[in-house]
C-alpha cells in the first residue's frame, strides 16, 4: 500500500471540496472494497476522503418514493421494515451478498461502485485493460468461468459483482449524485456502462461526484418477487448467475414484469424484451421458458463460461417460478 493522506468529511460540501482540490484523491465509505484494492496496489489514491460520517444514511419514504442514503449500511437497509415491506427483492439481494460482517461495514454507495472481481484485474502481474489500459484482457483467452456472456468487448469481459445493484435495476431505481456543478439524477440503467474501448471506466459517474442516495419508486411487485443467486457454495461467494425477478400478477395473469441478471455482464443486465413478453401471459412454466429464451438472445460464452448460456435461462425460469409461487 502506498502512503496516503486521510481527511474526514463531516458534510457533503466538505467532501466534494476535498476531492475537487486533489485529482489523486478518492472517497472512502465502508472501505471493504477500496482498502483491498489499495493493499494490492490496484488503485493508489494519495488522499482518501472519509465520507462514512456524512449524514447520508437515512431511509425514508416520501411521495411514493423510498429514499435510501448512500451511506446507509447494507445490513441496515436489508433489515429495514420499509424496505422489507415495499421492496423485499432489495432486502433479499442485499442478504445474498458477502457476509454479515462485511454487510455491517459496506454502504449503498460503495456497493454500487465496487469493482469487478476478475482474477486478472486483481493480479498486478497479469494483463488487464481495466486496471492498466493497453495491457490486454487476461480473461479473454484465460480462465473466464466467472465472466460475461452479454455486452462484453474484446478489451474486457469482466462482470459487475454487485447483487444489490441487480435488484435496484429491476426496481427502476434512480441514483442521486452531486458534483461541483450541482446535483443530478441518473436512472439506474444508465449508471454503469459497458466496457467498449474504455473498460477502465465502470460508470457514468463523473470524477469528483458523490453519490447522495438512491430512490426506489412504489410498484406492484412486493408480493411476487424473488432474488435467486446461484453460486459455488451456499453462502459468501459471488454469483455465477443471479436473477432479480419481479412480477405483478392479477388473477393468474402477468400485468407487469421485471427481470435483471447479475454475473453476466459488465453491468447489471436488464431483460426488457423478456419482461415485455410476459405481460398479458398466464403464470405458467411455458410463459417463463419463452421469456428465458428471449432473454438469451445475443448471449455468447467463452471457454469456461459456456455453462452460463444454460444456467442463466434455467435460473430465470426458476426465479420466476419462485416469484409467482409456482414452487
Amino acid at each position: 500500500m502506498i502512503q496516503f493522506q486521510y481527511t474526514r468529511a463531516t458534510e457533503a460540501r466538505m467532501a466534494l471540496d476535498a476531492i475537487s482540490k486533489d485529482q489523486s484523491s478518492m472517497f472512502i465509505a465502508g472501505g471493504t472494497n477500496l482498502v483491498d484494492l489499495m493493499k494490492r496496489g490496484i488503485v493508489t489514491p494519495e488522499r482518501i476522503v472519509d465520507i462514512s460520517r456524512l449524514p447520508l444514511n437515512k431511509i425514508s419514504y416520501e411521495g411514493k418514493v423510498l429514499k435510501i442514503g448512500s451511506l446507509a449500511l447494507n445490513s441496515t437497509v436489508a433489515e429495514n421494515k420499509l424496505v422489507q415491506h415495499k421492496h423485499p427483492l432489495l432486502a433479499q439481494a442485499l442478504n445474498a451478498g458477502a457476509s454479515a460482517q462485511i454487510r455491517n461495514m459496506a454502504t449503498v454507495g460503495g456497493n454500487i461502485l465496487q469493482r469487478t472481481r476478475c482474477h486478472y484485474f486483481y493480479d498486478t502481474s497479469l494483463p488487464c485493460n481495466k486496471r492498466e489500459p493497453g495491457t490486454g484482457c487476461g480473461a479473454l483467452e484465460g480462465f473466464n468461468r466467472m465472466h460475461a456472456i452479454f455486452g462484453f468487448s474484446d478489451k474486457c469481459i469482466a462482470v459487475h459483482p454487485s447483487d444489490m445493484s441487480v435488484a435496484l435495476l429491476a426496481l427502476d431505481a434512480t441514483v442521486l449524485v452531486e458534483g461541483s456543478k450541482g446535483q443530478r439524477r441518473i436512472p439506474f440503467g444508465d449508471f454503469h456502462r459497458l466496457p467498449g474501448d474504455k473498460p477502465e471506466i465502470d460508470t457514468n459517474l463523473l470524477p469528483g461526484e458523490l453519490i447522495l442516495g438512491v430512490e426506489v419508486p412504489d410498484n406492484g411487485f412486493a408480493k411476487n418477487s424473488h432474488y435467486l443467486k446461484v453460486r459455488d457454495r451456499a453462502s459468501y461467494a459471488f454469483a455465477l448467475v443471479s436473477v432479480a425477478a419481479a412480477l405483478q400478477i392479477e388473477k393468474k395473469v402477468i400485468k407487469d414484469a421485471r427481470i435483471a441478471l447479475g454475473g453476466v455482464a459488465h453491468k447489471p443486465w436488464r431483460l426488457a424484451e423478456a419482461e415485455r413478453s410476459l405481460i398479458g401471459k398466464p403464470v405458467s412454466e411455458a410463459s417463463f421458458q419463452q421469456a428465458a429464451l428471449l432473454a438469451m438472445q445475443g448471449a455468447k460464452g467463452f471457454k469456461h463460461n459456456e455453462f452460463k448460456l444454460k444456467l442463466a435461462p434455467n435460473s430465470i425460469v426458476q426465479a420466476l417460478k419462485v416469484a409467482s409461487r409456482m414452487v
Binding site: 486478472y120 497479469l126 457454495r233
Partner: peptide, 18 residues
C-alpha cells in the same frame, strides 16, 4: 504458470451454510 484463484474469494472452502 500462475494461479488465478488465489484468495479466499476465489478459492472456496466450505462455509457454515455448506
Amino acid at each position: 504458470g500462475r494461479y488465478v484463484t488465489k484468495d479466499f474469494g476465489d478459492y472456496h472452502v466450505p462455509v457454515h451454510a455448506d
